[in-house]
Amino acid sequence: MPTLNLSVDELRETARAVRHDVLVAIHTARSGHPGGPLSAADYLTALWMNYLNYDPENPFWPERDRFVLSNGHCSMLLYTLMAHRGLFSRGYLLTFRTVNSRLQGHPSKTALPGVEVSSGSLGQGLSVAHGMALGARIRGAPERTVFCNCGDGEMQEGNIWEAIMHAGHRKTDNLIVSADWNNAQIDGYVENVKNIAPLPEKFKDFGWRTIEADGHDMDDIVRAWDEAVDGTPARGKGCGQPTVILFKTVMMHGCPTYENIPGWHGRPPKEDEVMQMLNELGYSYNSIDEARAAMGGFQEYDGYGAEDGK
């Protein structure tokens, strides 16, 4: 099925489960980046379940839409979305960052089928996504939409602005960027580290259709995605502009005790912390093992290519 068409309530519940898995897997790895995944979980869950044209049985299906995670440190969110979309079992998420796992610290195209391009060195994914969108057009298939997620701190990278200028210049309207506008990065709040404001005005000035949304209000998220994809050639003529959705978000959203603290960008939660986080998400376990068991426990990779070892 190309998309799942979940209800808003179902999307909310899926996003809650996604946060659960992200936290348990990062805690289990004792390494990883929880902050970004919890801030982008709601709107990227909506994208992956309801908008991304995809076949989980064949991540190389030629007619699929493309998704690029430019802020590759949010890898655990990508992997969790893939698992919840049906590419492989949730239990495999517990192998994150262990040797020989396909779930590399930052996404690797050659390691995991479904990763469209390796990322992790910030600022690169948007240019790649734009190249994909141009490739679709040259191939006579502008109805393939390319989605790209960027962090707001990442927008301090020069390569990002080269890509924004390029896509604006070419009016590449099968490209949709989602920006995780949480105002937090490793060294503090973005506005203090190196201010990137005003983001909406900057995108508009570069020729982009700019949509703003509350990245934690699922009704508003669905409205924004609907509006964004309505402007692509997949839904008709195309609006003649690349589109960005600026999702206002909060780092570590869903765990109020830990929200909006930049330190959670790249720190794995300890056991007492992860238990409290899960509790704040509405999961009550007696031990972290129960949480792992809820994910199916440790599992081997069972996704595309598993049989032939690819």
Binding site: S127, M132, A133, L134, G135, I138, R139
Partner: peptide
């Protein structure tokens, strides 16, 4: 990176 993206469509 634009070239990298183009290559993913068989170009």
């Amino acid at each position: 990176n634009t070239a990298a993206g183009l290559s993913t469509f068989g170009l």
